[in-house]
Design a protein around this nucleic acid. Structure first.
Lengths: 342, 342
DNA sequence: TTGTATGCGTTATCAT
DNA sequence: ATGATAACGCATACAA
């Protein structure tokens, strides 16, 4: 751990003063070519690296953005984080990452820690836990904030459209002739689940049909076993012929149950999944799925933050919404026993 | 952006000096209960948050660890990063994350940036690109370093065992009766691929058989299409009856080719994959795979770093090696036409 | 154009 | 036990 070289060292080596070193290295206008040359040379010789802490302390900013995620175990986050990091790196900012591991209390702790870190801003992908009121939790801070997937009025935010997405997916199945369509989604009592159910209802209504809520089982948690829910669905007197399943872990359970009951996809049963990274590729058959461009979500959040930092605080809040796309795989067909099949 | 409250503000509010505030808040021995109470109270009233930058500047450490990853698009990294973050958070350290996006030149840039960030240490999961010599690249720095998946003598490092893993996988297939076993892996000319091929050879040798290198096609990149390689393999006069495929993207292509040729797994063809997060669950049938506990990799790296920080610099280097486990799915069976099947 | 001096917010040392 | 002061490394306002 050798002592690091500072402006003073460079100044001494170049035979000038520390102030001149700073000016020369930061490209000040009023610096003679001779001095600049001397300084640049000495800096390189000594391997000078300006101390970001000291510079940040002096300048009042760190060029670092914090990112608080609710739970990195969720496969969705990897791509979002990558998107944030990428966009930030393009603009010379660094990313400080913290994970709440799904615990709301840790979200609070992390945010407090962030406030001490002299961050230029914080990107938050927080839990939907109702006990967390954005206003009380993050209000009264002096950090620029960008929310991901939290539609709070008066804040910069990137939102994931779900209602129309579910409408698309459900309509796709209705068009194939399905009428008994199951929907498995976590957190029906929170916004994401509620929006999804609403889109599901929309599709039925627009088709002049009535949605049957018995086909939307209530899940306890995103980690709950989707297999058991699927069993209950299939044990209904009139079981569903198709499933829209939003949740990586839920899906694996549901697929397992289908295999156990020897229901072939798509011949006996149709499935639409949520499109995480490589899922379509591994599934056999490839799954039709709702796909969100997750790196774009991260990039959008980062761009909102950079925009906020570069502009006066009076800049009005912006809301970016990202749509889902229905990627057609080979997991959907007409319901069994229908006569419009190929 | 309200001006933040500093020790001076707290001191004024409590009617004491800044020095006393610092002592009181940092739990110094020599502080009267009365003063401590006054200070604690004032600090809470004003919502005082110590400035980590200033503190770091003064103390010479930031409680922040940098992590440099080669390419976050690789699905393996999410879990490793999560493991690092988790372990660091348990010890009050923060994680600064940077991604080289697979570009070696960016690795260099990032490391330079890290050197300026007053980090306490850096965890590196760098590329295997031969042009990157660890010695010239990272040597001569004064930062504690921990390498992930880079077996460099004289450095703290977490290594992924591959040779024995491939031996296990290959032996599993040999035991089932397979003799023509394909191996698809990226980067045969670098260490990971080489080690794998060695383990593959080991298994054959230990079974008294000779491995046939024609079953190990050369892949250009981990993003290359495994489907085309699979086609070439199946077009051999004596095509393989089983495949060990190490690479998420390569696998999806290989599976696609098997589907196209109407080869059923495991009836007509056996497959062993590399176990990324949720893969086994989605694949149909569930895949037998080689699984590494990736969060443990991250945690181990973080622990090596913390150990290094807490101890004198004379501490000898440590090498941690993580084994793979062969998780039995339903994708392996006897070769077609064999007589020892069920 | 360059040197000098000051302060960013902390903590540690030295007085008292 | 507490107050005063200096220093961490840097950038800038001001002086020359």
């Amino acid at each position: 751990m050798v002592k690091s070289v500072s402006v003073v060292d460079v100044a001494r080596a170049a035979g000038v003063t520390p102030g001149s070193v700073s000016r020369a290295l930061n490209g000040s206008k009023h610096v003679s070519p001779a001095l600049r040359a001397k300084v640049t040379d000495a800096a390189r010789r000594l391997g000078y690296q300006p101390n970001a802490q000291a510079r940040g302390l002096r300048l009042g900013r760190s060029n670092t953005i914090g990112m608080l995620v609710n739970d990195m175990r969720h496969p969705m986050y990897a791509s979002i984080i990558a998107g944030v990091e990428h966009e930030l790196s393009l603009h010379g900012r660094m990313l400080l990452l913290a994970d709440a591991h799904g615990e709301v209390s840790r979200e609070k702790t992390i945010f407090d820690t962030f406030q001490r870190c002299a961050l230029d801003g914080v990107i938050i992908s927080a839990s939907y836990d109702p006990e967390v009121s954005m206003s009380t939790h993050y209000a009264g801070n002096r950090l620029p904030l960008v929310l991901i997937d939290r539609d709070v009025e008066g804040m910069d935010r990137v939102c994931l459209e779900r209602r129309n997405a579910l409408r698309l997916a459900t309509r796709h199945l209705l068009n194939l002739g399905h009428r008994r369509i199951a929907l498995i989604t976590p957190a029906l009592d929170r916004i994401p689940g509620g929006e999804r159910a609403a889109g599901y209802d929309d599709a039925f209504r627009q088709a002049g049909l009535a949605a049957d809520r018995r086909f939307i089982p209530r899940m306890q948690s995103p980690l709950q076993d989707g297999g058991e829910a699927m069993q209950r669905l299939l044990d209904l007197p009139q079981p569903p012929t198709a499933l829209v399943c939003l949740g990586t872990r839920l899906l694996s359970g549901a697929l397992r149950t289908l295999r156990q009951r020897d229901l072939k996809v798509p011949h006996d049963f149709s499935v639409i999944a949520i499109g995480s990274t490589d899922m379509m590729a591994f599934a056999n058959p490839p799954l039709t799925c709702l796909r969100v461009d997750l790196p774009s979500v991260g990039r959008a959040a980062a761009r909102l933050m950079l925009r906020r930092l570069d502009s006066p605080a009076t800049l009005p809040c912006e809301r970016v919404e990202l749509q889902s796309e229905l990627v057609i795989g080979e997991s959907c067909g007409p319901p069994p026993g229908s006569h419009n099949g190929p």
